[in-house]
Amino acid sequence: MASQKLQSVPGSPSGETALSPEEQERERAGQAYFDRIIAEDSRIEPRDWMPEAYRRTLLRQVSQHAHSEIIGMQPEANWITRAPSLKRKAILMAKVQDEAGHGLYLYSAAETLGQSRDKMMQDLIDGKARYSSIFNYPAVSWADMGAIGWLVDGAAICNQVPLCRASYGPYGRAMVRICKEESFHQRQGFEILLELSNGTPAQKQMAQDAVNRWYAPALMMFGPPDDDSPNSKQSMAWNIKRFSNDELRSRFVGMMVEQVKVLGLTLPDPDIRFNEETKKWEHGPLDWNEFKDVLAGKGPCNAQRMERRRQAHEDGAWVREAAAAYAAKQAQKEHAA
């Protein structure tokens, strides 16, 4: 057997009719192998055979996750220059920088599924790709840095920790690294809110106001309710998702209920209760129409976020080209020598 170049995953092409008998046999064997790996709760690795739908689902999920990290830098980056103490400035810088790193880890994982990062980036700035809609809300006060860390990163971590065990190896490994690094993100957000809550009346008001604004969008980060989430079932069958949207949301609410007491603030949701029968936390109604609107581009900052990313990408084109041209010239020189 010859060694192979790393190459595209041989999933089933869209028109399956043209498969030769050998190809059909390979498909059958591949599917059987894939099914066994999933049944054993083992991991699929990049060049394993995988069903096209599995690959497509993952690619969509991982690239959207990556885009969310990159777009998610913006609301916080806006406050780096205004951070009210040098310590907070350093923390915020490191956090936003981490988000760029997390985007890169995830793009890395997505690339193993057969799409170049350049294509993904192009899809993002062409408006063809999605990212978490929460980043289309504005960060209007310093307390938002706290609320984003505590609620948004908190929700993200809740989502991400089970993803460390996602059946696709590179995705799980990226999530392990990300979860390790993010453990500081939520804590720093909590600390910001705690300082504000224990501060002047104006500071405390700022904190409560931020929690009020970010609470519902954070709950919606877990995705639509289970009965309105058609893809969840398949993702769970493939061991990509480990818990349903509502399950994770309920756990998250349960954690926040306790933590908000330590903060000395309140959650803007009078309907929160622990259901003794189901042993689950329940929350008040969420405005899913708003969620869909924001996802559809009608959020307060959709256009602004996209424009900023596009601008950075386009302004950087000459730099990327220069470095590539330099590398080519150097390679030529070495070749000639």
């Binding site: 830098m73 913006q74 040098l86 400035k89 350093a90 490191a94 920088q97 760029a100 601008q311 950087g316």
Partner: peptide, 29 residues
């Protein structure tokens, strides 16, 4: 330098400039 984070020519450079900014901020503090 902090202003560059999220605006650099490539994502890798966002991180590089961020590291330099953090170093300088550390010295300043």
């Amino acid at each position: 330098l902090g202003h560059w984070i999220s605006r650099a020519p490539e994502l890798e450079e966002d991180i590089a400039l961020g590291n330099i900014a953090l170093d300088q901020l550390g010295h300043a503090r």
